[in-house]
Nucleic acid binder design. Sequence first.
DNA 1: CGCAAAGATATGTCAGACGTTTAATTGTCT
DNA 2: AGACAATTAAACGTCTGACATATCTTTGCG
Lengths: 246, 246
Amino acid sequence: MKIDPANPADLSAQIAKAIRDAIISGALPVDERLPSEAELADQFNVSRPTVREALKRLAAQSLIRTQRGATGGAFVNRLRFEDAYGQQITTSTLLLSMNDVSFATACEARYALERACAPLSAQRRTADHLATMRAEAHRQQQPGLTDEAFCASDVAFHRALVDAAGNPVLSYQLAGAVEAMQPLMNMITFSARDRERIITLHTAIADAIEVGDGAKADENLANLATYTQELAQDVIAKRNAARHAK
Amino acid sequence: MKIDPANPADLSAQIAKAIRDAIISGALPVDERLPSEAELADQFNVSRPTVREALKRLAAQSLIRTQRGATGGAFVNRLRFEDAYGQQITTSTLLLSMNDVSFATACEARYALERACAPLSAQRRTADHLATMRAEAHRQQQPGLTDEAFCASDVAFHRALVDAAGNPVLSYQLAGAVEAMQPLMNMITFSARDRERIITLHTAIADAIEVGDGAKADENLANLATYTQELAQDVIAKRNAARHAK
DNA sequence: CGCAAAGATATGTCAGACGTTTAATTGTCT
DNA sequence: AGACAATTAAACGTCTGACATATCTTTGCG
């Protein structure tokens, strides 16, 4: 973890990579304290600001945490699922918005992945997960709900569905797919009839999960996917019509 | 994008957050040039090193890129899928290694997600994807192959399978699940018979993908998942036996 | 023995400076 | 006038040195 080519540019990136590799390889175990900034500066033959830039890069990825004070320093951070969720959601959201990903593509991915969870969720769901799903389905019936609040509740419902699979790795991977869809979903206006249909499907999914019928949950998720695509196509069609009119 | 509480700690983190939020909200579009470091330092009322630390945080997430020279500066970066792949794989790998995720849990997640791709892949695979899958299955038959090379080829095979779905969002989400398994897979020693069985399943999957039979691909993936779990359990059992012996 | 004060250590921030890269401008020669 | 070379300017990349602040440890006093 010491090599540093004579190339005097991107020093902080090189140092960050060296430390990151050491963490990934396991040479630096969790909670291990890195040398102090001054010591690192010495080891790498650079100045302290350069070392600090490298450490900030690692901190941005939650790979290290820093503590001030006498026994402070930079410590290898145990990457927690909750921390990773946030990064995953940010990255996924930006990927969708910056790459002209169509609603259809994002939606397809989301429901394909969710359907992968359905059998496991039906098998393992706890009373807690089921209660959350029921509560969100109920919340969605409130008449005064804004479209945005409706979407947020939709996300919460699906998050509970995914979490019910009891597999943190799945929950992590799905977080991006589910949450990143929200900005796209927010562009849709849900009529009362639209909502009714969605809630019916949500309820059917919750029913299937409750009785452990994975196939039925999967089937209703597929219906929900199709219906969501139709709603989005309507929005796009209307927008195109409006553009032609003006 | 200017607010900055009087709290004189974590300034670089606060500044990074402010800029990141501006990018996410769309206030800073792709390829937009940020003010120079000196100007940012002025705007936020901090020193240039502090601004630089903030920019490095953003660079670590591929949110900005920097250019030197007269027309240089920091530019909002179009987050590309390839860039996101790397981050996703790094994060997933560390999540697994740092959180005592069992082989069973990771394996379950991986195959559940892959099976979600199977129907789409069977429907849309190009000749290219199929050729890659065939080539990797063939490579796996080479007798002198190390276990590590065998695993690498396995990953390449499954990557091609996922990419065949033609959905970049799916490919992105799956990248983490598939690649992060490699370190865990590398702990397994594959006997000639093990490999033969795996190659048979790979071939069956490729066959199913070739003729567009998603259900059959799914079935063989399920078998492969089961078999992989069995192999891992053997390894664990042997390791426990060895521990008791000493 | 307990508690407060002093010290040590390490991060967080600042100020100023110099080097390097790159593009634009200027100037000169053909 | 046009092309090419030299100068200039802007911006990032890095360094040095310093001060501020947080926190643990040690010391000293009652």
